[in-house]
């Protein structure tokens, strides 16, 4: 499984006074089993990009290949693309509508024409992937659940379509710290057990640093940078110019390094940072 985006350009309202170039010659690849993080200031084109990956938007020019198959030439059935590429929008809990959790999660598989007999198993499996129990909540109304649970039900609704690529737009937005941690570990679980490509957009640089194998930085409709989190977050000045931060630990370590030149660190996590400090100060005392 792979995704290849070639020279993607998208113009809103072409030829109209409100014409805007939301994507401008964007090219990148995502390899099998990779977790790709996408960052960028609001309005940099991230959401527009995501909507091209499952055919919700048609590019003005350029192509998207999913597993070698071009999905932008209009020959593939849209429902097949959407089964292959699952897209979870920001605040996905607002799209729940069925009477019961089980029915809501079954909405996607049913739309793709899956046989009724297989649907229940799909729903069970999807709910257990997001850490929920079918027997416990399958028959309850999705509107009675807590905020974090609702979000997981919505994600299960996309997972039940067995996508080969899972795209998440700001999966942790608006959650409390505990629910936030749960969603992060849920994403890791999904990745490990399904082995699928995961693409996620986040403003939380800590999440980006801890989850992604590779990071793409969007700025003014273009890809401004890409690389491992280490590489991308070492360009703190360029990121700041695009209105982006580095992970909080990174920013602390940079402030320390500015005052104490002997402590140089590329750490992205607290543990790495602590090790770098201990190493730099011989005889470090607690």
């Amino acid at each position: 499984m792979s995704i290849e985006v070639k020279n993607l350009t998208y113009i809103y309202n072409p030829g109209m006074p409100g014409e805007t170039r939301a994507l401008d010659g964007v090219s990148f690849e995502v390899h099998d089993g990779e977790i790709l993080g996408i960052i960028g200031h609001t309005g940099s084109g991230k959401s527009t990009l995501l909507q091209h990956l499952n055919g919700l938007l048609r590019p003005t020019s350029g192509q998207v290949f999913v597993d070698g198959q071009c999905i932008t030439d209009g020959k593939v059935r849209l429902v097949d693309i959407r089964r292959k590429v699952g897209l979870v929008f920001q605040y996905p809990e607002y799209q729940l509508f069925e009477e019961t959790v089980a029915k809501d999660v079954a909405f996607g598989p049913r739309n793709t024409g899956l046989e009724e007999s297989k649907i229940e198993n799909r729903v069970r499996a999807a709910l257990s992937l997001v850490g929920l129990d079918y027997d416990e909540i399958g028959e309850s109304s999705p509107f009675e659940l807590s905020g974090g649970q609702k979000r997981r039900v919505a994600i299960a609704g996309v997972l039940a379509m067995r996508p080969s690529v899972l795209i998440l737009d700001e999966p942790t937005a608006g959650l409390d710290p505990a629910a936030h941690r749960e969603i992060l570990s849920m994403i890791r679980t999904i990745h490990e057990s399904m082995g699928i490509i995961i693409i996620f957009v986040s403003h939380n640089m800590g999440d980006i640093a801890s989850l992604s194998d590779r990071v793409i930085v969007m700025d003014k409709a273009k890809i401004a940078m890409s690389g491992t989190p280490q590489e991308v977050f070492s360009h703190d000045k360029q990121l700041a110019a695009m209105g982006l931060d580095v992970p909080p630990v990174r920013s602390i370590m940079m402030q320390i390094a500015a005052e104490i030149p002997s402590i140089q660190s590329n750490a992205l996590t607290t543990q790495e940072a602590a090790e770098d400090i201990r190493r730099a100060i011989p005889g470090f005392e607690q």
Partner: peptide
């Protein structure tokens, strides 16, 4: 970070952290 390093509870800002590390 302070907790992982096992430093004093009085460190609340980056400035506190820097002066503590300078001392060290």
């Amino acid at each position: 970070l302070r907790e992982v390093l096992g430093l004093s509870d009085s460190i609340m800002t980056v400035e506190d952290m820097i002066s503590e590390l300078k001392k060290q």
